[in-house]
Computed example of a mutant assay.
Amino acid sequence: MFSRFVRRLLRGQTLKEWLIEFLRFCTVGLGAYIVDVGLFNLLAYHWSIDLPFDQSMTAKTISVSISIVVAWVGNRLWTFRTQEQSSRGREFAMFVLVNIGGMAVALACLAVSRFVLGFDSQFADNIAANVVGLVLGTAFRYVLYRYVVFAPIPLSASSSRPH
């Protein structure tokens, strides 16, 4: 039973190939995280431009949006480059939806910490959202990227595509 699970997890890859893929995923994610945090801080606190609505909320919306594009390009061109897709537009839309799901995971962790457990300090918020939420959200995203967004095209679908 365990070996069947491992075979399914590896999806035809060796353990080494899977580990390389996973490390690439983590590297791309770190790059996107740096873009997100760096751009957010530049827009919200260091550039003297007035953003519409709330400065921080608008800055965060912009930084997350750009980091999603950075993550998609990195994962498409490096992490999952060997996985063919019939539609890059569909793939990108699925990628965005998965990232919204990952954000929901982090927000759920924060909500449980604040509203169920009653922890409301800055430290507790950061642990809930940026440690627990980040770890769970990253696991969520990786599984869905691997098995849904960047999943290989089934042989029957790829053989019917024009070349």
Rank of each mutant, 00 (worst) to 15 (best):
Y145L: 03
W72F: 15
L155M: 02
Y147T: 05
A151P: 08
L39P: 03
T82N: 11
I127R: 04
F92D: 01
V116M: 05
V112C: 01
H163F: 08
K60L: 12
A44L: 04
L155S: 13
F25Q: 03
L136W: 08
T61G: 13
Y147C: 00
I127H: 04
S48P: 02
W18M: 10
Y142P: 02
K16V: 12
F150N: 04
E91D: 05
S156V: 14
L9H: 08
S65H: 06
D54W: 12
Q55N: 09
L77A: 14
K60M: 09
F2H: 09
L10I: 10
L42H: 09
I100E: 04
V135Y: 05
Y33L: 07
R88F: 08
F5W: 15
A44C: 08
F53W: 14
F115N: 14
D54Y: 08
F25V: 01
G89A: 10
S56L: 03
G29N: 07
A108T: 15
S113H: 04
L110Q: 14
A129C: 09
F140G: 03
T61L: 07
R76L: 02
S158W: 06
R11L: 08
D36Q: 14
Q85H: 10
I100D: 01
Q13W: 01
C26L: 15
F140M: 06
N75F: 12
N75V: 10
Y147I: 07
G101F: 05
D54K: 01
V112Q: 00
G89I: 11
S113I: 02
H163V: 07
K16N: 01
R146Q: 10
A111T: 14
L136F: 12
D125H: 12
L39I: 10
S87I: 04
L30H: 01
V143M: 03
C109L: 07
N41K: 12
W18P: 00
L134Y: 15
L51H: 10
T61N: 08
L144V: 05
A111P: 01
G102S: 12
F119M: 12
R146F: 11
S121C: 00
R88S: 12
T61V: 04
L110D: 13
D36G: 00
V6S: 08
V64R: 05
A139L: 15
M57S: 09
R90W: 10
C109M: 15
Q83V: 00
L117Q: 09
D54V: 02
E91S: 13
I127Y: 11
H163I: 07
G74C: 12
E21V: 05
I153L: 15
N99W: 08
V143N: 06
Y45H: 15
F5K: 09
E91H: 02
F92A: 02
T82W: 03
T27R: 00
L9Y: 11
S159A: 14
F123M: 07
S113Y: 06
R161L: 15
V148K: 10
F150Y: 14
A44V: 06
S56T: 11
G74N: 13
F140H: 11
S48Q: 11
L97M: 13
T58H: 09
M57H: 08
D36Y: 14
I68K: 03
V35M: 10
M103I: 15
A139F: 13
S87L: 01
M57P: 00
L42A: 15
V131P: 00
F2T: 13
F25D: 02
T61I: 07
